Computed example of a mutant assay.
Amino acid sequence: MKVGMIGCGVISRQYLESVETLPDVQLVAVADLDRARAETAAEGREGVRVLSVDELIADDEVDTVLNLTIPAAHAEVDLRAIAASKNVYSEKPFAVTTEEGAQVLAAAQEAGVLVGSAPDTVLGTGTQTARAVIDDGLIGTPIAAMATMVTPGHERWHPQPDFYYVPGGGPLLDMGPYYIHALVTLLGPVQAVVGAASRLRTERTIGSGPREGETIPVSTDTHVTGVLVHESGVLSTLVMSFDAVATSAHPIEIHGTGGTLAVPDPNRFDGDVQLYALGGDGWQTLPVTGGYEETGRGIGLQDMAVRGADLRASGELGQHVLEVMNGVLEAAHGGGRVEITSTVERPAAVPLTPSAVQV
Rank of each mutant, 00 (worst) to 15 (best):
G188D: 02
Q191I: 04
L187W: 06
T202S: 15
I180R: 06
A197F: 02
Y178F: 15
G188P: 04
D174M: 15
L183W: 05
L186Q: 08
L187M: 07
L200E: 10
P177Q: 14
G176M: 09
T185I: 02
R199P: 00
M175I: 15
P177E: 13
M175H: 10
G195W: 08
L186I: 09
V184Y: 01
A196G: 06
H181W: 09
R199A: 09
L187E: 07
S198G: 05
V193S: 04
R199G: 00
I180N: 01
P177C: 14
R201L: 15
S198Y: 07
S198D: 08
P189L: 11
L183Q: 08
V193M: 09
D174K: 02
T185F: 01
V184Q: 05
H181G: 00
R199F: 05
L200V: 13
M175E: 11
A196R: 15
Y179H: 13
Q191L: 02
P189M: 04
T202Y: 12
R199V: 01
V184I: 14
G176K: 07
P189G: 11
V194C: 01
A197E: 00
R201G: 03
H181M: 10
R199Q: 13
V184M: 01
M175G: 11
R199Y: 05
L187Q: 02
G195N: 01
E203M: 14
G176P: 04
P189E: 09
L200R: 15
I180P: 01
R201A: 12
L183K: 09
E203P: 03
L187R: 04
G176W: 08
Y178S: 13
G176V: 10
I180F: 08
Y179K: 08
I180H: 00
L187Y: 06
A182F: 04
L200P: 06
G195Q: 03
M175Y: 12
P177H: 14
G188Q: 09
L200N: 10
A197S: 12
M175K: 15
